[in-house]
Amino acid sequence: MAGKGFFIDTTLCTACRGCQVACKNWNRNGTIPTKNTGSHQNPPDLDGNTFKLVRFSEVETDGKLAWYFFADQCRHCLVPPCKDTIEGYVDDAVIQDEATGAVVFLEKSKEAPHEEVTSSCPYDIPRHRENGPMVKCTMCIDRVSNGLKPACVKVCPTGAMNFGELDEMIALANERLAKLKPKYPKAQLLDADQVRVIYLVVDDPKKYHKNAVASLNPGIDRKTALRRMARPAKGLIRTFVGV
């Protein structure tokens, strides 16, 4: 598969949240007023100013405590349902960059029905700005197109965040999986053949985050979601329609 990809090894993540801040820094994103609600996860969810969020999850399995960190972001699906949804309503509001495979929302996405776009995403990623466009991770396409790594990857101290050619990322992911499997029998890659952002987890993915794997959304069951993902999106065969 051509284009770029991420490999996110959650076993190396220390939740320093460098990525969460670096994303805001590069994208000049602001903040929302937050409160401590009994968790270190903040802001509580992705939002119009937060494209990358470290999710904290405390779980106990067989009396053993684990504290999982999940650096959530857009998966840049190979066949992005969000694009399909947006384009069902408005033209020229989303692109899937040919060279990288990055899925990028444009200004006109504000005309798309926000909730429907969000619910069409198997990972519950797209958000919108107040009276503004739909937003999410852009794969730092401006950085990547100029030979740099995305801000969240560059900032990562431990190698949890990786970026490169998708093929190389898949190879790296499989290599890490093979290394971890003996110690962690539940180790797995998440939806690796569907997305450009591949996570490695060592436990039931739901214990990390309810949307860690492609999952149910209102009105869409998992099968439908996957079917939609697998269907060639009409955006891919669209041609230029003029200025």
Partner: peptide, 22 residues
């Protein structure tokens, strides 16, 4: 991680106080 000492610098930085507000 998100703050430093008494927070004399970090409490004033929006990205950090958003992450650990209270």
């Amino acid at each position: 991680t998100e703050h430093w000492q008494t927070g004399v610098l970090t409490r004033w930085l929006p990205w950090l106080i958003e992450a650990e507000p209270q």
